[in-house]
Design a protein around this nucleic acid. Structure first.
Lengths: 121, 121, 121, 121
DNA sequence: GTGGTCTAGACCACA
DNA sequence: GTGGTCTAGACCACT
């Protein structure tokens, strides 16, 4: 995995895990890689992974069983709300910027449709 | 102006100026506020503004006349391409994230339309 | 190291690093001194070094690993082209001035040869 | 005339006048344009020209007759030594940089000859 | 310990 | 009055 140098690595990894969770690549209750293994897998400092897990834990997305590892929450509604939150965040951030540029929702939809057609060719 | 604590101030100011340029609030050839005045206006250190102007200059968005001030480029095509680039950047960043979440363009358009209707009520 | 008061220190340091790179005193992938250490070594403010590294990075001559330091690019062709560019810059600047003084290349070569002989004595 | 933004305009104008003098485009005793006219001709601030004349005067290259204008020195040996000084300055600056890059005089001559042949084609 | 950012304040060259 | 550079010192995020 390549990281964007502008954004803290731990945030990028957090986003990755959240995305995997939302799209079902990771399921509730799944055990996450140990910090050490994850660090090796992502070629990253173990401390960085430790921070990722700590932050995710503080968001109740995962939890730690002493001596056993870190696990995704069993709370399905948490995952569901995560999905909505993630999408809404992305959407509102995007809309805010586009509005600053005087783009209406209609303009954006037009632009997206052109995007879609271009892809279909 | 309020700054997002997560993003370097100088980047936020750069984005602000670019946006102003794209929506025509600033025009080609316009003189920008002096570093000192801009610093006062934004309640920021003059050095920070100096960096903003320096970086914008390295992007050919503005240029400096020694002892006279900093001016927006006279090159209209530069501004035009800036506009496209800005929108495309926002759009592609957004699309990338949404695709990672398995949203199709159609899904997004649907979501946007619902957004639009909600606003019209 | 002594600095020429006429030229910004950060430019002089950049030129020094480029020269070291070109003559093989620094090699690709090498870690540069930390900003603080380099600042101490050159008796200069750390901010000045930070600027040097930032500018060199924008020229793709070095890159930064978060929290780990600043490193010379691994791209050997970059270094190769830097060497050529540096020499060609020096040469063309020199030639331009000499031509303005109505010196032909032949004249210059003659002058250089006299220089060489003088040195050999 | 276009100015290099990196070098003070007054220095560039000084170099221009010196060059004109050395190549005989300006002769000893010649009257220089008035600061105002020169400023208009070069699209530059009159203060800048005033500084140019002041500096040239301090180098004994020109002198001022009250109410009559600024004139090139009548001292021919001054002009002669200026020529040598200018060339030697350019040469030694160039040589110093090339030596830092481990180029010998022989290398430079080789490079120059290739330059010459390329031009003759 | 690493670089990145920011502030405060100073001095300089230029127009 | 304009930007450019530099110092000093601080805080922060990341490894």
């Amino acid at each position: 995995m390549e990281f964007d140098n502008e954004i803290p690595i731990y945030l990028q990894i957090m986003a990755m895990i959240k995305t995997d969770l939302v799209i079902g690549k990771i399921l509730k209750g799944d055990k996450l890689l140990s910090t050490r293994d994850m660090a090796v897998a992502l070629k990253v400092n173990p401390n960085t992974i430790a921070r990722v897990y700590r932050e995710l834990e503080s968001e109740s997305i995962c939890f730690t069983k002493r001596g056993m590892g870190t696990f995704i929450t069993e709370d399905e509604s948490k995952i569901e709300s995560l999905k909505e939150q993630l999408v809404d965040d992305y959407l509102s951030q995007f809309m805010k910027k586009m509005e600053q540029l005087n783009y209406s929702i209609g303009d954006i939809i037009t632009k997206l449709k052109r995007f879609e057609e271009a892809t279909h060719e």
